[in-house]
Design a protein around this nucleic acid. Structure first.
Lengths: 303, 303
DNA sequence: GCGAATCGATAAAGGAGCCTTATATTTGCT
DNA sequence: AGCAAATATAAGGCTCCTTTATCGATTCGC
């Protein structure tokens, strides 16, 4: 395998026509060029230059190799150019996957922070379920996953047990909230209890087994006013007093209607939000910056 | 500039997934791979791998660089492949230019020799006048020129005065011959004198000033039977007794008709045939082989 | 033609880089 | 918990690279 440094020397010799000029152009001394050309000729197995009066002439083999050398050096420059994007302080790419609620709250906040601190950093965001985010992290397609686990939820808990080799960065705890009109009596207290709201009408998502079970535990059966899975629709229905709703705390902040407030449910299992990554990748500045921004975003939200 | 050895290490790490396997594949020890990857990361300015349990994982920068590394290594392999043709013992190319008479005599003989001694060597032959061959040699487009100078010919001598930096390899001395039927009385002697042939009819080339002047010196004016510049036509005309002809010794051997013989003219200026090349290029095996073959061909012809 | 200047070749010495052996540390599997 | 496997680190030895100094060859100007 040819040494690209020597190939560079060859191209300079070809360009300038003398060893001395090539040496000056390369910042070397003339004997260094002489040495490298000799080594290159030994590697090539054939003379590459011949003395011609004061300077040197390239042989046919020398001209052919010089031409190939240009291609090699161009490929090396291309590699350097591409890596310059990664190595640039604050630049580069980082790949992130997050579940839906995280995408509308933590991720935008973190990206807003990064826009100030690392304006050149490009974050590639993918919205997926927690299970596929975990897969993507294992396969290396993403650098960081924002996930959640549902404490005491036997179904979901089995799905998102993270690989023990991965590192968790706790971000926030997500409380289940009741969405209710701002002038509702229960809005007066900081938290609410399900039993207080036994007589209300409800706007529910399709996935409602946990909620119904909790109502049963509290001794009532909820009256259903509407069913929708769209978070924004739920907000509007509550604002127009169609009924109350339950929603994850993270989703609450995505849409702020003055007529609607959210009050956490007391004694409800909390959802833990955390980032997941390979332990050593925190050394990569881009990943570190994103992880820090996520932590900041979560901290600002919880305060 | 990245070290291609380290880029090779990177591609092997990417392929195998572990340093140990990459080291074995490369014939190194594991610490050597570890060292090179560390150096490569320092050159790249960003982490390229992260530990993932027992093995390592490439970062996005690492994967990008590995991809570029493939291109660099491919370019290096291409350079090696191309040079293999030049470095192969006996293979490669050599570029030659020769004047017309040389092309039909010395060059074919030399190439026949090379076909035996260096069957893989490719000789690129260009037929040019001596002046342009000299130019091509100076510009480096050819490696070797077969030329002639006309002793005592003031016109031609000025045109082909070779650059003093070039080296001459004498090949042969070319005598001017008379072409005559085999049963002609003058064919009995080894050489002929122009005065013997005062009564003959002649087949002449367009360029005939030298010959006419010589006839005048010998005291007669030749009778012209035909005029042509084609060497083969001249041969045929002589064979069919249309007339006699004068021809350079080199051209005589291009066509052997049993009815025709050539006899050198006495007291006629000789043409010196020589090869011209840059002094150091004789180190190149291909050029050396061709020069030797030309010398052999000239020696065999003169004997 | 002859001397000065320029260019390449070579030798020796100092230093940097690279590979190895040996050992420690981390991780995964049973 | 303990063994196996993989990476990280340290130190030694060897090679390669660059420089300084000098010589030989060639060119160009007077």
């Amino acid at each position: 395998m040819f040494d690209p440094l020597q190939l560079h020397v060859l191209t300079e010799v070809a360009r300038t026509g003398t060893y001395t000029a090539a040496a000056e152009s390369l910042g070397y001394t003339q004997p260094a060029v002489s040495y490298h050309m000799r080594m290159l000729e030994r590697a090539a197995g054939t003379p590459l230059v011949t003395r011609a009066g004061r300077g040197v002439r390239l042989t046919h083999a020398g001209r052919a190799l010089a031409k190939q050398a240009e291609a090699v050096l161009a490929a090396l420059r291309a590699a350097e150019d591409e890596l310059a994007g990664f190595a640039a302080p604050g630049g580069g790419q980082v790949h992130l996957a997050a579940f839906s609620s995280g995408c509308v709250s933590l991720v935008p906040a973190a990206l807003a922070t990064l826009r100030r601190t690392d304006p050149e950093l490009e974050v590639v965001v993918t919205q997926t379920e927690c299970g596929t985010a975990h897969e993507l992290l294992l396969s290396g397609e993403i650098d960081l996953a924002v996930m959640c686990d549902l404490v005491h939820d036997p179904v979901a808990e089995a799905a998102v047990r993270p690989d023990p080799r991965l590192r968790r960065i706790p971000l926030a705890e997500d409380r289940r909230c009741v969405l209710l009109p701002a002038d509702h009596p229960a809005a007066a207290s900081a938290t609410v209890e399900l039993a207080q709201l036994a007589g209300e009408r409800w706007v529910l998502e399709t996935q409602r087994t946990r909620f119904l079970a909790a109502c049963t535990e509290s001794g009532f059966t909820p009256r259903i006013a509407a069913t929708t899975d769209d978070q924004l629709t739920i907000h509007c229905l509550v604002a127009n007093r169609i009924g109350l709703a339950v929603m994850n705390e993270l989703g609450v902040h995505a849409h702020t209607d003055p007529r609607v407030v959210a009050r956490p449910l007391r004694d409800w299992p909390r959802r833990r939000i955390f980032a997941l990554l390979w332990p050593d990748t925190i050394r990569v500045p881009q990943i570190r910056a994103l992880a820090d921004a996520l932590r900041d975003a979560a901290g600002a939200r919880s305060s």
